[in-house]
Design a binder for these strands. Sequence first.
RNA 1: GCGCCCUUAGCUCAGUCGGUAGAGCAGCUGAUUCUUAAUCAGCGGGCCGCAGGUUCGAGUCCUGCAGGGCGCACCA
Length: 513
Amino acid sequence: MGTEQELRRVRLAKLQALCDAGINPYPYRFPRTHTLGQVRECWGHLEGEAMSEGTVSAAGRITNWRDMGKTVFADLRDQSGHIQVYLNQKTLGAEAFGLMRHADLGDFLGVTGRVFRTRTGELSVRAEKAELLCKALRPLPDKHSGLKNPELVHRDRSSYFTSDPEAREVFVKRARAIAAVREFLSARGFLEVETPLLQPLYGGAAARPFKTHVHAIDETYYLQISPELYLKRLIAGGFDRVFTVCKNFRNEGIDKTHNPEFTMMECYQAYADYTDILELTENLYAHVFRTVLGATTVGVPSDEAGGTLVELRFEPPWPRYRMLDLVQQHSALAVGDLDASGLRSALLALPSDHALFTEMPRERIGALSWGEMVQALFEFHVQSQLVHPCFVLDHPKETSPLCKPHRSDPRLIERFEPFANGWEIGNAYSELNDPVLQRELLEEQAARRSGGDEEAQPMDEDFCAAVELGMPPMGGLGLGVDRLVMLLSGQSNIKDVILFPFTRSGKGEGRAE
RNA sequence: GCGCCCUUAGCUCAGUCGGUAGAGCAGCUGAUUCUUAAUCAGCGGGCCGCAGGUUCGAGUCCUGCAGGGCGCACCA
């Protein structure tokens, strides 16, 4: 009595006993009149000996059971809350009361009765009828400590969520946040669309894809790494404002801010540039925060501050910083005034044990362009410092093949990334619509790819054809939804904002050799 | 991919110097008509992650493997 199997056997025996007594332990429905939260709302004002006039029918999972002999106090829980049920041999009748002996923690119970307060003041339903709604065979996690084993927390989500209402609350916020995103964009005339997740080519980002095989046509396909190239086809096709909330799949590292499949919001607005999109971004964030939290300020555990809570303000406008200025400030290198060889010698003049060289190996610097060095310096010196919400503008042109050149600096493109808590939370461009330059840049990518760069994008002729058809000038934005929810709910691990985060299968394939 | 740490009952965790396995919760039996992590009496429950090794003797020491956590790297 105590092994998993034995616990199961005991419950199966109770199940059989119920069946023998002519009870269906899995009835079809229970006409409840109130959720448990509503019971509390409607009758919370009761005082003393007062009792509700009519009866309520309420149901939930049994989370606690205090057996006093001829009286049992059981706690029921549903999504809206919890309430105590008073089960008494006299009120319920000896037969029905006797059947309750076959109930266990974790079973679902429906009761009908009047609402009252016990002598100790606990709001309770005094059951005149009680009906088992589902007999459970597995025990719930420990009623005090819950499920703590981090392996099971992310694998056995059913058990975990039963034991941690706060964890469930994160996903209520997530759902509200995504609804708020849709509401904000729809109100501004954006049409919600879907892109194929199975694609013959992949693009729109620099990432290794997941590969799959379509048997019907015997061809290799890829899971989407970004919806960008499909959304732009729609703009070329005459849709002026589109957005999608979709999954992206990237076959790369897994850590506290990276899950192999993650949720993205991407939108494109014709006749706009990145300055318009910048305002859209901060207003969208503010709208979501106001809708879900009722405030634009939130406390978030910060890695940079050793895990302590840092108060972040998402109220627009967020500060705008030019990337060159930030790098110059934090690295004390006048990157904007140096050309590639000047910057290269400045870097090589640093002491050879400088931490920078663990990020950017000394011997590779000779092969890097000016823009690649600037980007690397940004990631090394600046990124983690960007704790408060802000925008980083005007990246080197090497950082994207899908963005318009900067109108006043040929070394740069019209790109910005919003940052918060040291995380990149989005990416936006004045989108490239010059078909000649677009083809040139994608051919460059394809060449790097055949040169062994696994993250460079393959040539996509269909996409180039769409660009050649003509696209209006437009601004585009991608926002990481998971990171948005992390900020909104104060979570520091992406696995805690994804209902079913990626875990190893345990099959161990590919590890034999 | 590299480094460090973890894996003991269904759940949460102890386990000293290497000496043959413990608690609380849950479960079972009984008592109990107002409890709140109810209480009281009693009873069961273990491949100590897996496989080797050292030893008279391994939960404990060593090696390998698996799973997990953290950090680093990767992720423009």
